[in-house]
C-alpha cells in the first residue's frame, strides 16, 4: 500500500537549513516560537520571584523601622560594586548577541568570556558578603548561630563575644543588637530570612546563567552560531538581562533603606 505514509517533509529538501528543526516550517517560525517561549519563561521567572517580593513588601510595610535598622548590616559598597559588575556583564552579553548576528566568532567568544568572568566576580563578592554575615551572626532567626534571637540567652556565647554587630564594637550601628527590644530583634531575623532567600535565589539564577554561558561558549567554539542561527545566544542574553534586572531591584530594596 501507500509508501508515502512516513516520509514527508523530512530530510528530503536539500535547501532545508540544518538547524531548522523538523517540526517548523521556516527559520522565521522557529525564531518567533523561541522568542515567545523565552519571554513566557521570563514571565514565569518574574512570578517565581514575586512571592519573595510580596514577602518583602508585607514585612517592610508592617515593620518599616525594623527594615531601616536591619539594612545597615548590609555592605552597600559591595552591593554597589556587584551592581556595576552585573550591568557590565549585561552589556557584554548584549554585545555578544550582535557579534553572533554578524558572525564575528572571536569577538563573540571574548564577550561571552567577559560575561562569564563578571558573573564569577559577582558570586565571589557575594561569597565574601555571606561569609562576613556568618562570621558576625547576622543571620535568619532559626539559624543556630544567629544573634537575632528574642531571648538573649539563646544567642551563642561565642557570638556574644566576637560579633561586632551584637556589641556594636566600632560604634558603626545606631543601636547594638544586644540592646534591642526582644520582639524587634526577632523581626530583624525575619529581614535576614527575606534577605538570604532573595539573594540566595538570585545567586542560584546567576549560577544557572554561568552554566548557560559555558554551554554557549562551547557551541560557539564548535561554530554553531552565525547570521541565520543566533537564537540560543539571543535567548540566553534575555535570561541574563532578567537576572541582572532582578538584582537592580534587590540592591536598592535591601541595601539602600534609609
Amino acid at each position: 500500500m501507500s509508501t508515502t505514509t512516513n516520509d514527508h517533509g523530512h530530510g528530503h529538501d536539500p535547501n532545508r537549513p540544518k538547524h531548522l528543526a523538523h517540526h517548523f516550517e521556516s527559520l522565521g517560525q522557529q525564531f518567533d516560537s523561541g522568542k515567545l517561549g523565552i519571554w513566557v519563561f521570563l514571565l514565569t521567572e518574574v512570578l517565581f520571584f514575586s512571592a519573595l517580593f510580596v514577602a518583602y513588601t508585607m514585612y517592610r510595610s508592617n515593620y518599616p523601622e525594623v527594615f531601616q535598622y536591619a539594612s545597615q548590616f548590609l555592605d552597600t559598597k559591595m552591593g554597589a560594586i556587584n551592581t556595576v559588575v552585573l550591568l557590565l556583564s549585561s552589556f557584554t552579553f548584549a554585545w555578544a548577541v550582535r557579534n553572533a548576528m554578524l558572525g564575528e566568532k572571536s569577538k563573540l567568544m571574548l564577550n561571552l568570556l567577559i560575561t562569564l568572568v563578571c558573573a564569577g566576580g559577582f558570586m565571589g563578592i557575594k561569597y565574601v558578603e555571606y561569609s562576613h554575615k556568618f562570621h558576625e551572626g547576622t543571620l535568619w532567626g532559626g539559624n543556630e548561630s544567629t544573634i537575632f534571637k528574642a531571648d538573649p540567652a539563646d544567642v551563642p556565647a561565642e557570638m556574644k563575644e566576637h560579633s561586632s554587630a551584637w556589641n556594636n564594637t566600632d560604634g558603626k550601628y545606631s543601636v547594638a543588637v544586644k540592646d534591642l527590644d526582644p520582639a524587634f530583634r526577632q523581626k530583624v531575623g525575619v529581614f535576614f530570612g527575606v534577605y538570604f532567600c532573595l539573594t540566595g535565589l538570585h545567586g542560584i539564577h546567576v549560577m544557572i546563567g554561568m552554566i548557560l554561558i559555558v554551554w554557549l561558549l562551547l557551541r560557539t567554539r564548535r561554530g554553531d552560531f552565525g547570521p541565520t542561527n543566533f537564537n540560543a545566544i539571543d535567548f540566553g542574553a534575555l535570561y541574563w538581562h532578567l537576572v541582572d534586572l532582578i538584582w537592580i531591584f534587590l540592591f536598592p530594596l535591601l541595601y539602600l533603606i534609609t
Partner: peptide, 15 residues
C-alpha cells in the same frame, strides 16, 4: 523553612 527555619512562615520566629 522546614530544613533551615528561615522564619518567614514560622510564628515562633516572627513569621
Amino acid at each position: 523553612e522546614k530544613t533551615m527555619q528561615i522564619g518567614i512562615f514560622t510564628p515562633a520566629l516572627g513569621g
